[in-house]
């Protein structure tokens, strides 16, 4: 039905919900170690021997519960990265932001991190990085302020 007397309008509005995400016991231990001891921990599968960082409670390939914690040095190798040049309200830093995936020494998975103290055009896959922790830490992945180039 077309109604020529009235010009159709589009209403613009917000719908807001509040959620809280549970990290769980395994995730909590990982974040608490970062917050209290500036230590990055991995978890090792007793069946296949893979070390997961960030940790999860079950090995996705073997479906076994993991409980063996492994302390890592924090140093690692960049496996891929991208540079974000536009701005969004939820971004933790001002652009340009270099998002990298770093495989920490001793781990079999990569971890997301913001790369710092390096220019975007100087970053190369395979470069070595180490974490720089915030002074005020609250138990979040962002307690790692950024990863900086290391030897």
């Amino acid at each position: 039905m077309t109604d020529k007397a009235v010009k159709p309008v589009v209403i613009e509005a917000d719908s807001i919900s509040t959620f809280q995400v549970t990290v769980g016991a395994t995730g909590t231990k990982f974040l608490v170690e970062i917050r209290d001891n500036k230590r990055i921990m991995g978890i090792k599968c007793s069946s296949c021997g893979k070390v997961y960082v960030p940790p999860r409670s079950h090995c996705p390939t073997c479906c076994v519960k993991m409980s063996e914690w492994v302390e890592l040095s924090g140093k690692g190798t960049l496996t891929t990265y991208t540079v974000v040049r536009y701005k969004e309200p939820y971004q933790p830093k001002e652009p340009p932001i270099i998002y990298g995936v770093i495989q920490l020494d001793g781990a079999d998975t990569g971890i997301y991190g913001i790369l710092g103290e390096v220019e975007p055009d100087k970053v190369k896959i395979g470069m070595r990085f180490e974490p720089v922790f915030k002074d005020e830490r609250e138990g979040s992945l962002l307690d790692i302020d950024h990863f900086r180039p290391s030897s």
Binding site: V21, T22, V23, G24, A25, G27, S57, H58, C63
Partner: peptide, 26 residues
Amino acid sequence: KRKDVNAPELVTEAVEAALKDAQLTM
């Protein structure tokens, strides 16, 4: 409330129970 597990861990509890009941694995 289940603060001790995140959603994937909670779901895995049920899957493991069903697999055990059927005596199967993933």
